[in-house]
Simulated scan of single mutants.
Amino acid sequence: MKKLLILLSLSLAVVACDSVNDGYVIEGSIEGENTEGTELTLRKYGENNQLITVDSAEVKEGTFMFKGGPAESPELHYIFFGRGQENIPVIVENGEIEVSAQRDSLSYARIGGTLQNELFYDFLKGSRVLSRKASSMNQDMRVAQGNRDTVTMNSLREEYFELMDEAKGYELDYVKDNPNAIVSALIIYRILSTKAKTNAEVQELYDSLTPEIKASNAGLKIKESLEKEANTSIGAKAPNFSAPSPEGEELALNDVLGKVTIVDFWAAWCKPCRAENPNIVNVYNTYKDKGLSILGVSLDRNAEDWKKAIEADGLDWHHVSNVQFFDEIAKLYNVDAIPASFILDENGVIVAKNLRGPALGQKIGELLQ
C-alpha cells in the first residue's frame, strides 16, 4: 500500500475555501516518551522534487505549533520529527489545523480542523485498513516461506491480488464520492501516470471534479498531461523541437526526418537504456540504408557522460541534449521515465511508441518494406 502514500508526495494546491487573509495555524499534540524538546520541521516538496524546510518548532509540554501565511492555496506539507524520516503529512491551508499523534505511531496521527485535512484523513483511514491487511498478509507469507508451505503461499498470492483490486476500487470510489478533495485529483494523476486506465477514462474522472479542484496544481497537472498525451498519441503529428548536438550545433527533429524516424529518449545513467542500445544499434545498421533515421534525446545532466556513452555504445546517429535532465523536450512528449521512444512515419506522424527488443525491429521492418 505504499503507492497510496507515495502519490501524496506530489506538491499540490487548490483555491482556498477559507479566507486568504487569516493565514494558517497548525496546533499539534503528541504523547509518548522522549518527546519533550524534540525539534520539528515543516517541509514540502519544491520544484525539483526536493524537500525544503518551511518552518521549525519544538515540542513543549506535549504540544507544538506552526503559524504562517496567508497561504495562497492549500499545499501538502510534512511535519518531520527530529533528524529521522518519520513524519506526519498535513495539508497547509488557511484556518486552524489540528494534529494529534502518538510518538511511536506517527503514521496513525489524526489530522483535521479544515476541509482538505478532514477529507485527507478520511482517505487515510481507509488506506490504513488496507495497509493493515497487507502487513498481515506479508507476515503470513514470511511464515509460509519459512515453512516451505507452497499451498499457503499460493493462496496468499491470490489474496494479495484480490487486495490490490480492492485498493484500486477503494481509490476509484473515493474519487467518485469526493470530487471536492485534492486527494481525488492526486489519485487521478497517478492513474494517468501509470497508464492504469485509458485517457478517455481518466478524462471522465477529471471532468467529475469540482472547479476548485480542477484549478489546483494537481488538477492542472492532469489537464496538462491529458493534452500532452493527445499531442503525442499514435496518429498525432510529433511536436517539433530543437536542441544542441554533441558538437554544439542546434539540430531540429524536422531536419532529420527519414522514411521512418525513431525519437529515442535515453541517458548515460539509465541502465535499461544502455541495455537496450545494442538492439537499437542492430536495428539501425539493418535499416539505415532503407530510410531509417534516429534522433537520440539525452536526459543527461553531464555533457561528458553523454558524449562518452554515445561513443562507448556505438550510437552512430543524430543526437541532441539540453543536458538538463527531464527538460522541456521530455515535458513536451510527456516523458517522465526512460527509456521512451516514438516511431514516426515520413510525415512525422507517430505510428508506434515504446517498442523495445524484437518488437522494435519487427515494426521498423514492416514500415520499410
Rank of each mutant, 00 (worst) to 15 (best):
N277A: 14
I26C: 04
K2Y: 02
S341I: 00
T232A: 08
F241Q: 09
A267G: 12
F81D: 01
I338R: 06
A312T: 12
V20A: 14
L40T: 02
G46S: 13
K44G: 09
L186G: 11
D207V: 06
A218N: 06
P179R: 03
N48L: 10
L12N: 14
H319W: 09
E159K: 15
I262A: 03
R142P: 00
A196Q: 13
A230V: 09
A252Q: 06
N277R: 06
N217R: 12
K259I: 02
E39H: 06
N34Y: 02
N282V: 01
P74V: 08
L344R: 03
S100W: 01
L344M: 03
T261C: 05
D313I: 07
S193K: 14
Y206V: 05
L76N: 13
G291F: 04
G37I: 00
D300M: 10
K197M: 15
V260E: 06
V297A: 07
V260W: 02
G357C: 04
E162D: 11
G365I: 08
T63N: 12
D313F: 08
S135C: 00
D327M: 05
G112M: 07
G82C: 01
E159P: 00
T286S: 12
A267Q: 05
V351Q: 13
W306Q: 10
V15W: 00
G146F: 05
Q116G: 05
K237H: 09
I191L: 15
W306V: 11
L295P: 09
E366P: 07
V323F: 04
L360P: 11
D255W: 03
V15K: 15
E304D: 15
Q102G: 12
S242M: 13
A134S: 12
C270Y: 08
D173R: 11
N199H: 10
A215Q: 15
I111Q: 11
D313P: 07
T286M: 03
G126P: 09
G32Q: 01
A134M: 15
A185E: 03
L106Q: 07
E166V: 01
L124C: 02
T210Q: 07
G314Y: 09
R110W: 04
I343W: 04
V351G: 10
L205G: 11
E39C: 00
T63F: 06
P74L: 04
L4T: 11
K223V: 01
R356C: 03
L205W: 10
E158S: 12
A337E: 05
D316Q: 14
S127G: 02
H319Y: 06
S193R: 14
Y284C: 04
N34L: 02
P211Q: 09
F81Y: 01
V351W: 05
N285I: 02
I26Q: 05
E36T: 01
R142A: 13
A352R: 06
Q362L: 09
F342P: 10
V99H: 10
I280S: 01
G28L: 07
A359Y: 06
S131W: 03
S29W: 00
S184L: 02
A337S: 15
T35Y: 00
K221S: 14
L10R: 14
L76I: 15
A16K: 04
W306D: 10
P211E: 05
N282E: 15
G248V: 05
G365Y: 06
S56I: 09
E61S: 14
R110S: 10
H77K: 03
W269K: 05
G248S: 05
I191R: 11
V151L: 07
T198K: 13
D177P: 00
A109N: 08
M141E: 12
W306Y: 11
K259W: 03
E158H: 07
